[in-house]
Design a protein around this nucleic acid. Structure first.
Lengths: 299, 299
DNA sequence: CGCAAAAAATGAAAAATATTCATAGAAAGT
DNA sequence: ACTTTCTATGAATATTTTTCATTTTTTGCG
């Protein structure tokens, strides 16, 4: 009764604004779409659009269908792709979602040996999710979530795979450069450089500065790690990054890692999967590979 | 390319064990099914079943399709029902999911006036979810989640609608019955009666006993509130429940609420919805009704 | 073993469905 | 007012699905 074509039409009409335009995209005639939808409307007994002049406005039922289409069609499309991958003899695509910027650097180190181990598995990395990483896992948009905030919920399985310390990064000329650690009060006058993330989600803010009632003088947002570190090296600000990441750049750039507070900020990277996927071999292998110490891999 | 019928066939063949049997259920002939699937197999280029003698065994691709079918078909079926509801002039069904036992008692108080206010909306309550309450929200299994653990994730919106105190419940004859409050140490020898939930998820355990290093002598599990309270009244154990719930039973049963620790344990019930549903009127109305003080309703 | 039963595959025919074509009607833009 | 831009619709056509009739393969069983 309710077929894929109906969902496609509803979605495409919404995107293009008219039946006629949608017909072009779907490689059908306007008439075909009109007939199809009319038939569905008769079958279910309710209109999907209000015909207002020469334009269509979704009814309540139509809006519901649109939401359904936006949700199901991508899954069907992904399924078609995946079937073709099976046909091509590939195992499939491991679709990885990421929720933190520095995770990306870490991930690269894992993906590279993984691709060697599993030549018939493709890896795809996504970073934007309508409903966040967890939603993407539930919706089968991704198969694996890399995140600093695990969430133990039924149906999902999280595992810590990597421990690291989040440190402050300053230029080698900075007055603090030699200190054994820094206190929040010492950062009041600084420019804080970070990835484009709301300040509330930054560890250096919510675990270090905010509890002490300190705010940075200014907050600057930069997309890439390299540029961020160049800014820091040239004394234009400070930032916070994983220690291992800073150490990798330390010989090429004039930057110094510093412990945040006496105890430092300890962090972990977690991998999350759907419980039902727990025994897919190539997924299991990824998690196991990720768990192996980074040292062994980065050699 | 990949159509609903293919998913239906895969699912039904799995359920009934053969194409022939599936054909009966789907009101088609065995031949029709065979042709349909053959065509799909040719299109995607991979077999879906291994033909072993006169039986079919799913290939990897087939298993993948089966998982897809089990996931998508229920959503399509639900959508068809819902469209017909729209057609019948009904507003739809408000599907409520619940993640905590005592929430149920509270929910009943809200649902009753809601049904009066919205005669053309049906209410359905579900309690079991493959992927937990959050997963059910994301998967559109439910429209509203009642839970004590909110989760601020993009795409979801949680709101506290009800505050209550979680208290210890003892029989009127119990030695502690007159105390102003209880300390964890006083419960070391007791039998703890609870709903069937892992002990780690119980507030009385993880917020009260565990931090003090105390374990109850024994943990007994009971399904219903009434029986639980009868057990408590007869001195066979203690339990923890919302204060308002205990007070409702207090005149019929020999039970006494006691504060847990000096400060007590404060709890809240949250309602979670999908952000995209935020302006569905009958959903909004439910949340608003739920927010109104319980006193006003239970009168 | 040989035969009946059960299941899937297949080709051709029939039925059903979807699509197009041609056109009408309605609204919006100029 | 005229042109353009939409959607709707009926009839004709094309395509797809389904059935029917049969074949092939396998399995169970006396």
């Amino acid at each position: 009764m309710l077929e894929k074509i109906h969902l496609s039409i509803v979605r495409e009409v919404e995107r293009r604004g008219s039946l006629t335009a949608a017909a072009d995209v779907l490689c059908l005639t306007q008439s075909a779409l009109s007939h199809s939808m009319k038939k569905l409307e008769q079958k279910v007994g309710t209109d999907i659009w209000l015909r207002e002049g020469r334009s269509l406005r979704l009814t309540q039922a139509g809006k519901y269908l649109l939401a359904l289409a936006e949700r199901l069609l991508p899954q069907l499309e992904r399924a078609e792709e995946r079937l073709e991958q099976y046909a091509a003899g590939e195992r499939g695509t491991l679709c990885i979602g990421m929720e933190c910027h520095p995770c990306y650097q870490w991930l690269l180190k894992v993906v590279s040996p993984y691709l060697d181990d599993w030549p018939d598995v493709d890896v795809d990395v996504k970073q934007k999710f309508q409903f966040g990483g967890i939603g993407a896992l539930f919706a089968y948009e991704i198969d694996l979530l890399v995140t600093p905030d695990p969430l133990y919920k039924p149906g999902l399985r999280f595992e810590a795979v990597f421990d690291y310390e989040q440190v402050l990064v300053v230029g080698r000329q900075h007055v603090l450069a030699g200190a054994p650690h820094v206190d929040p009060e010492q950062l009041g006058g600084e420019v804080l450089i970070t990835y484009p993330v709301e300040i509330e989600r930054l560890d250096i803010y919510n675990q270090f500065l905010m509890p002490a009632g300190i705010s940075p003088r200014r907050h600057r947002v930069i997309e890439t790690t390299e540029i961020m570190l160049q800014m820091v090296a040239s004394g234009r600000g400070i930032t916070a990054l994983p220690r291992w990441l800073v150490e990798e750049y330390a010989d090429k750039m004039e930057v110094v890692p510093l412990r945040l507070g006496k105890k430092g900020i300890a962090k972990q990277i977690f991998l999350g999967i759907r419980e039902s996927d727990a025994d897919i071999d190539y997924l299991k292998a990824f998690v196991e590979l990720a768990r192996r110490p980074a040292i062994a891999r980065s050699a």
